[in-house]
Amino acid sequence: MPDTKRGRERKGQKKRHQRREYEIEQALEARDRDLDFEELYEEAELELEL
Rank of each mutant, 00 (worst) to 15 (best):
E38H: 05
R16H: 03
E38N: 08
A44T: 12
L50E: 15
D36G: 00
Q18S: 15
L48W: 12
E38V: 09
A27N: 11
E45G: 02
F37S: 14
E49G: 02
D32S: 15
F37I: 10
L28K: 15
D32F: 04
D34H: 11
M1H: 09
E38S: 10
E25F: 07
F37A: 11
D34E: 15
G12N: 04
R10Y: 10
G12R: 00
G12L: 01
G12M: 01
R19F: 05
E9N: 07
E43I: 02
E43M: 04
Q13N: 12
Y41T: 04
L50Q: 13
R10H: 02
Y22G: 06
D3W: 13
K5G: 05
Q18H: 15
D34I: 08
E38C: 09
E38W: 04
L48G: 01
E39H: 04
R8P: 00
K5Y: 07
M1I: 08
Q18M: 14
L46N: 01
R19A: 10
R6A: 15
L46K: 02
R8I: 02
Y41Q: 06
I24E: 05
E43V: 02
E25P: 00
D34T: 15
E39Q: 05
L46I: 13
L46C: 10
A30R: 11
R19L: 08
D3V: 14
E38Q: 14
G7K: 00
E25G: 05
E39S: 02
E21W: 07
M1S: 12
Y22E: 11
H17S: 08
L50P: 01
